[in-house]
Design a protein around this nucleic acid. Structure first.
Lengths: 344, 344
DNA sequence: GTTTAGACTGCACACGTGTGCAAACCTGCA
DNA sequence: TGCAGGTTTGCACACGTGTGCAGTCTAAAC
């Protein structure tokens, strides 16, 4: 950018550029509006003047007149869920493909959800993407009324005109079950925290069904309670689940996510002296970066955050073009990544 | 929110609310402007009408007329740096205290920086917060000219009127050195990736100085090269640093961040059969959640992400009120968290 | 030279809001 | 009642932009 020699006290406006280029303000506007009718000569003069003045389109004013901004609300339940964090980067990248910018909103308390969604409305967001968390069905209806596109990743919606993109949690659970069984485990358990998330329930269902279908008798699938999350939750659950005679102890455990699995494994090894995979086989879910670490080498189900993000954004953009399209549900396949915790 | 019975096809405007409440549009505007002069009676009628219509202030239009938005650009170098991720939540929380909203921008490639910063300007952001990454001194000058407040976290600025908030990296390095020495280590090493970040250099300097001051002779501090980051980088560095006769092998290692330390420790244990802390003591930096995991139990230096975020936002807000205040540099203390990797 | 289709340009209006200014209103006191 | 002082209100303008419409210009076809 050529720096201007004159005094340039504040923001250059389209009118300033017009004066400098010797054209009308409309010509400036059209130069920065893709597809508008401007001659090549005019465009060049405008671009030159704009460059000299350091002119930047005021997207706020543009949004006012077009009655829609290029902002997209991205609602996350805190930054402790590593899967959600992994989702952010591809979401941003895909939004950028459509010249959209993410307005990040954190909702750690469900009570915050209402005010947050209302706040986003004040920016006339072009759409909103939700990631896992408790469903704000109430105010989402306000979004429907205003035809603000909504897309959800790994969440249930049960709402007309809300697109849902989720990993194939059900199949993932089944794959986990088969993997544990193939490793020779007979007493199996599914461990999850009682957050009541859609994905957690779905993974458990897929797991249970596959276990039942395997023809093994007397399989006990346990769903335990806990108030803490992530790693610490895994430790707590292990304390409940492994503190029993060896003959009653599960031989194979499927954890609803990798952080849970890490806590569970650490407790199993260091508190109960169990060897993995010799005494206990473990499968996680998410394939977070640390799952590949030698300390864990965790067999897990990889979710394609790229696919999830890309599809969510594309659905959102489609709905911006036509808000009346019926709701769609898209399933993204998961992939079993086999590492040492299931290999014996 | 009371749902309206009438057909409400689109967005309610302040004029609509004014008609319904039987007042002027100005009264509506003043009702939603803190500190404006409205009688209690009028305010109540306006609020009632606004509620019935589902009216939400259009912050875009408001920003146009006030010539400044309530958006703050938050620039991050990807989501792979866990410390940056930890920073996001307190940043958002503190921005919310001042009714500001974060516009999240990812800059993984330094070449992207310029276009990203220009893009943020189009939203007339009220300020920008940078986290670690390569310095975009060039376009930052454009921000200075326009008097857009800038705050940096754990980054060097060297620019007038840019506030910098950083952890006491230098002292952290010194604490790490003393901790390793106190654990009995004599051959010490500092491992970092050649990203050239300010914080990395500062930590190394503090470490070196403290080692030199300890009076130990012939301490070798090694700064190694590598092209990969995080965990994999730690593994790669360990392969270089530990592949030598025991008498020449470092007994104490200070890693520039925890992820690096995890990779280093895993390689030391699984590839070189070293015991930690018996054969090797290790100190990290950041205190990410996994540092407390039993598999690592890593002694590390905790950065107060809350303090960093709070100070950065408060400096930013102060500068919004008065853009001419001289640049300030604020140091946030770090805390040594002792775990098993340094206890013998 | 005349006609005509097409590309380009400028005028003027619109978007939804904040706010200075003066008028209107209210309250209390003489 | 008359008046002073303060509070509240509405008018009108401003912010920076997109875009319909009609007019102008260019160039090709006749």
């Amino acid at each position: 950018m050529a720096m201007n020699d004159e005094i340039t006290p504040g923001w250059a406006t389209a009118a300033d550029v017009a004066v400098r280029a010797g054209v009308s303000r409309s010509a400036v506007s059209r130069t920065f509006t893709p597809g508008a009718s401007v001659s090549q000569a005019t465009r060049e003069r405008v671009l030159k003047a704009a460059d000299e003045l350091g002119y930047q389109v005021n997207r706020l004013a543009r949004s006012v007149i077009q009655r829609q901004s290029t902002l997209v609300g991205v609602v996350v339940p805190g930054m402790h869920n590593e899967f959600v964090v992994q989702l952010l980067e591809p979401i941003m990248q895909n939004l950028a493909r459509f010249s959209l910018a993410p307005l990040l909103m954190n909702v750690h308390d469900p009570a915050q959800m209402e005010s947050t969604l209302r706040y986003l409305l004040q920016y006339r967001v072009a759409g909103v993407i939700f990631t896992s968390g408790s469903p704000p069905i109430e105010l989402a209806r306000e979004y429907l009324r205003l035809q603000v596109p909504v897309a959800m990743i790994n969440r249930d919606a049960n709402l007309e005109s809300v697109d849902v993109v989720y990993s194939d949690n059900h199949r993932g659970g089944a794959l986990a079950a088969r993997c544990l069984i193939a490793a020779g485990a007979r007493r199996l358990a599914y461990v999850n925290l009682p957050t009541g998330t859609y994905s957690g329930l779905s993974r458990g269902a897929g797991f249970s069904e596959a276990v039942a279908m395997s023809g093994l008798a007397a399989i006990s699938v346990e769903l335990l309670q806990g108030t803490i999350s992530g790693y610490a939750g895994g430790v707590a659950i292990a304390a409940q689940l492994l503190d029993r005679p060896p003959a009653l102890r599960p031989e194979g455990v499927f954890c609803a996510n990798d952080m849970l699995a890490f806590g569970f494994m650490d407790a199993a090894r260091h508190q109960f002296g169990l060897r993995i995979p010799e005494d206990l086989v473990v499968v996680g879910f998410d394939d977070v970066p640390m799952a590949a670490a030698a300390s864990f080498a965790l067999t897990t189900l990889r979710q394609s955050v790229e696919d999830l993000a890309r599809n969510a954004v594309e659905r959102l953009v489609e709905r911006m073009a036509d808000p009346t399209t019926p709701a769609r549900t898209l399933t993204v396949p998961v992939e079993l990544v086999v590492r040492r915790t299931s290999t014996r």
